[in-house]
């Protein structure tokens, strides 16, 4: 490739990499938006971020490429996954629209915005590019360090203040001071007796004949599920599985199957 051509084009290998990985990145981004469960969204986003790291490396930003993998996919996405676990993995997003037509309007706005951005880039004269060969000649990390500690040193110091503020803010928001002493087991037992609501231990979850999972409410004698048997966390998340109608469904399925078999046998005897 001549030097003149190199001023406005990249190598074929990079073009191939761009088109293959770019497609995957866009698919990952779309999956992030349209996956129903937050865990799947997080995993798709992590994939997109790794591909972006590859693009940084291809663009000569070696330091940023590595930082992208370590900080974004390593730290930030794992933080997201932790919060997803806290909030409840299986809790799917409700897809009911509260404002009528909001989804279509949002898609329309997004489409218009995308066209606007692409038209703006298309109108700019960006046909020549310099490449980072000269800027990276002393090493990418050394070049960045020289800039950070000279031209951008004030911004870099302000960043320290920002990080401290963020750490303190996160602690203030999530840490709850215990204002009273934790009750001992004896006090709890005495309180139960005094209130006279639920003297014995709470009933166990699960219907022993078929299920013993903790998210299945135990059945009362009349066949209704007792919410008392499921632990409070699952109750709050609305993750109780209801099996009270399963027996009737199983019976129906069994009847249908036996009818089919009987019907076939009748046909065979005819």
């Amino acid at each position: 490739m001549s030097a003149q051509l190199a001023a406005y084009s990249t190598s074929t290998g990079e073009a191939f990499q761009f088109w293959v990985l770019g497609t995957v990145a866009v698919v990952g981004a779309l999956c992030t938006v349209f996956m129903k469960k937050a865990v799947h969204s997080a995993l798709c986003l992590a994939g997109t971020m790794i591909i972006l790291a590859v693009f940084y490396l291809a663009n000569g930003a070696y330091f940023l490429g590595v930082v992208q993998i370590i900080v974004y996919t390593g730290a930030i996405m794992m933080l997201f996954l932790f919060v997803v676990m806290l909030v409840g993995v299986t809790a799917a997003d409700s897809l009911k629209e509260t404002i009528k037509g909001q989804r279509w309007l949002a898609l329309l706005c997004g489409l218009g915005f995308g066209i606007l951005l692409c038209a703006g880039i298309g109108n700019a004269s960006l046909n020549e590019f310099n490449g980072l060969a000269q800027a990276n000649s002393g090493g990418n990390v050394e070049g960045l360090a020289a800039l950070i500690f000279t031209k951008y040193v004030f911004a870099f110091e302000i960043t320290g203040a920002l990080l401290i503020t963020a750490a303190v803010g996160a602690m203030v928001l999530t840490h709850r001071e215990r204002t009273e002493r934790a009750k001992t087991q004896r006090e709890l037992a005495e309180e139960r007796v005094r209130e006279n609501k639920q003297l014995p231990p709470l009933p166990a979850p699960g219907v022993y004949a078929r299920h013993n999972a903790v998210d299945i409410a135990g059945l009362l004698p009349d066949g209704t599920a007792s919410e008392l048997t499921v632990i409070k966390t699952l109750r709050d998340r609305g993750q109780i599985r209801d099996v009270s109608n399963d027996a009737i469904k199983d019976l129906k399925a069994l009847e249908q199957r036996s009818e089919e078999r009987l019907g076939r046998e009748e046909e065979a005897t005819k």
């Binding site: 938006v33 997004g110 915005f113 692409c118």
Partner: peptide
């Protein structure tokens, strides 16, 4: 390939993110 394509990809990803929000 012109590196402008990276800008188009960035614009596309930004749009997808904004629509998702």
């Amino acid at each position: 390939m012109n590196p402008v394509n990276y800008l188009y990809l960035a614009a596309l990803l930004f749009t997808i993110g904004a629509t998702g929000v």
